[in-house]
Amino acid sequence: EILSQKKDELSGEVYFIFQHAEEVHPGGAQEMVKAGVADHLDLCIAIHLFSAMPLGKIGLASGPVTANSDRFDITIKGKGGHASQPEQCIDPLVIASQVITHLQSIASRHTDPAERLVLSVTMCHAGSAYNVIPDTVTLGGTVRTFRKEVRANTEALMETIIKGVTEAHGASYDFDYRHGYKSVVNDPNVTELVRQAAENLWGKDQVFPLAPMMGGEDFSAFSERVPSCYIALGAGTGEMIYPHHHPKFMFDEKALSAGVKLFVNSVYFILHSRESISMKIN
């Protein structure tokens, strides 16, 4: 509405992207890029609210912002039997516990400590009775990385460990590693323009450097295609902070109007000359 009222003052085109399925792999952004939504874009900006940040604070990073976000499933196939006769079984639970432990060595012993890597086993399912050793155990989890070399090396090491541990106990396995969202990478030039627009609105004290986050974000489909800037906007309520995806998650709705102002002023700043830096739309 605001930009439509001032369309005669804009020296360019502005597209609004209403993204679907942000939390469901492969992600709505990737589907939209494949459909051609980004074909005519010169750059793209996005805002994400963060309840852990003070209201109105703006976090900006030049370069990587979020991590590659991958998923994996592991099925360990043993030989079930009665719990009182474990010697007649190939216990997949014992094997799974060793696999979980050894997988943690990928980050601690096989990866440069300066690299950012998270490998978390978040699911383990097996058995249905107290006195029965099950046939199989299924494990699942996530891997977060920034560099493609670390991403590929982690996947290869995981299979090496799983194969070695299961074969040592006479078991077999299935391993399914699925690449998810890529890392969001902010373009330095677009980020600088957004930074100046934000400082013009609220002053330098409201803008701070944003450290790379291990979370995943499918906006990477756009940032991979065109120069982009992913912005963190503080939406804290000042009360007890519950993390995102928590059932009691809450944010201050005043952040919504702040986001609109930042979007509109960023558009004006990007589409006009640097002499227009004093322009401010309230």
Rank of each mutant, 00 (worst) to 15 (best):
K7F: 04
K7Y: 03
D8E: 14
F16Q: 03
I17M: 05
A21W: 07
E22V: 02
E23W: 12
V24Y: 12
G27Y: 13
E31I: 07
H40P: 00
D42V: 03
L43Y: 10
C44D: 14
H48V: 10
F50I: 11
S51A: 14
S51K: 00
M53K: 01
L55S: 04
L55W: 07
G59Y: 12
L60Q: 10
V65E: 04
F72T: 01
G78R: 00
A83S: 15
E87W: 11
D91H: 03
S97W: 03
H102P: 01
Q104F: 12
Q104W: 07
A107W: 03
V121I: 02
H125I: 05
A129T: 12
V132A: 15
I133S: 02
T136V: 00
V137M: 00
L139R: 01
R144T: 05
F146V: 00
T160K: 09
I161C: 08
I162A: 01
E167F: 04
H169P: 03
A171Y: 00
R178K: 14
K182F: 04
V184I: 10
L193V: 08
V194W: 02
Q196V: 13
G203H: 11
E217R: 03
I231V: 15
L233Q: 01
A235D: 11
G238I: 07
E239S: 05
I241N: 09
Y242F: 09
H244F: 14
F251M: 14
E253D: 13
K254C: 05
S257W: 10
A258T: 06
K261S: 04
Y268Q: 02
E275L: 15
S276K: 13
